[in-house]
């Protein structure tokens, strides 16, 4: 009996992002036209930008770092890709590559600041935010950049390749990236090393991981993912503006919230990209459901705040209970466990 109860609670915590999504979907049933092909397709494709940023943020957080520059990096990616295509006249493929390369450079800079200059990642990326923002404004002179009527690739990204499935090309690319990162984290040596870095940096170093190099690569991957996401978003929209997400909820905040709801540990060493993706889907779906049920934006931010606060509160409580065990003698802990069934 006891065992079963414990099982349930841990299950809720592990799969909380799925449960969150489920609750949102149940409410979706109350609103008209939620479960239509068109709506689902539009919802899924609008998760794309947040997912790419979320991937970057999650990977960094697993390695025990915070990358605050992700939001501006995505904006910069969108600006660079459209600038390269429209202003410089390069083909799409090359422009996307350049945007991702810009991301890589910023990521390496972040990594160097964190590993070589030994600045806390929170501070280094905070400073990098200003630098990216300034560079971005200088590049586009404060103007929006658009594709100027060249909607070829835009239409291709929003087309649906498989009938009866509400997936457009943009979402399929996003999904491939999510699966790719999940496999990388779970099944490759480098992926496991990232968990080790976040779990305990010193142990990782003693175990023979080149921790500096791995950290730099992590930051690089994070920024590249964001730049790619921004670039695809820019093409999908047909426009890039330097002020994306300066008012309202910034993309960074959504990515951060989703990462935490997805169960990634802020101290590092724990987390899944897939869970982040699921929570982003849930958040985006929640926005849509709330808008159609309650109609006003005010409730969106209130509810997302409540969900996040609940998650944090719950996690904190669990930790607090665990803390109570610390300081007891091992033989007694066994006794305590026998008694409580924990």
């Amino acid at each position: 009996m006891m065992k079963k109860k414990k099982f349930n609670i841990s299950l809720i915590n592990t799969y909380r992002s799925y449960i969150f999504l489920l609750i949102v979907l149940i409410f979706g049933a109350f609103s008209d036209n939620f479960f239509t092909m068109f709506n689902i397709k539009s919802l899924l494709s609008s998760t794309s930008l947040y997912t790419f940023i979320g991937i970057g943020f999650t990977v960094c957080m697993i390695a025990g770092h915070m990358d605050l520059s992700v939001g501006y990096m995505a904006t910069a990616g969108a600006l660079v890709v459209l600038g390269m295509h429209t202003l410089t006249g390069l083909p799409w493929a090359v422009s996307i590559l350049i945007a991702v390369a810009v991301g890589a450079v910023v990521g390496i800079l972040n990594g160097l600041l964190v590993t070589k200059a030994k600045i806390h990642s929170f501070i280094a990326t905070l400073g990098m935010q200003y630098v990216i923002r300034g560079g971005m404004y200088i590049y586009c002179e404060g103007k929006e950049i658009s594709v100027k009527g060249d909607y070829g690739l835009t239409d291709k990204l929003s087309s649906v390749p498989i009938k009866f499935l509400p997936f457009n090309v943009l979402f399929i690319i996003t999904l491939i990236c999510v699966i790719g990162f999940s496999i990388m984290l779970a099944y490759t040596r480098f992926g496991r090393n990232i968990y080790m870095l976040g779990g305990n940096l010193e142990t990782a170093w003693l175990a023979g991981i080149n921790s500096d190099r791995a950290t730099i690569i992590v930051f690089m991957l994070s920024s590249m993912s964001c730049a790619l996401g921004g670039a695809l978003f820019g093409i999908f929209q047909g426009t890039a503006t330097p002020t994306l997400g300066e008012k309202g909820i910034a993309p960074l905040m959504i990515a951060m919230t989703a990462t935490i709801i997805g169960g990634t540990d802020i101290a590092g060493g724990k987390g899944k990209v897939l869970d982040t993706f699921i929570s982003i889907t849930a958040i985006v779906a929640m926005f849509s459901v709330v808008t159609s049920l309650l109609g006003k934006f005010e409730y969106q931010i209130l509810l997302i705040g409540f969900v996040l606060a609940l998650c944090v509160f719950y996690e904190t409580l669990l930790k607090y209970i665990k803390q109570k065990e610390i300081g007891m003698r091992p033989n007694l802990i066994i006794k305590y466990h026998e008694e409580t069934g924990k």
């Binding site: 036209n33 709506n39 539009s42 929209q237 503006t241 997400g245 008012k247 309202g248 926005f287 159609s292």
Partner: peptide
């Protein structure tokens, strides 16, 4: 959409949908 470009696109889709 609270000043969010992506959100406005989504709302337009939602409006078309209804």
């Amino acid at each position: 959409p609270n000043w969010d470009q992506a959100m406005q696109d989504q709302l337009i889709d939602q409006a078309i949908n209804s």
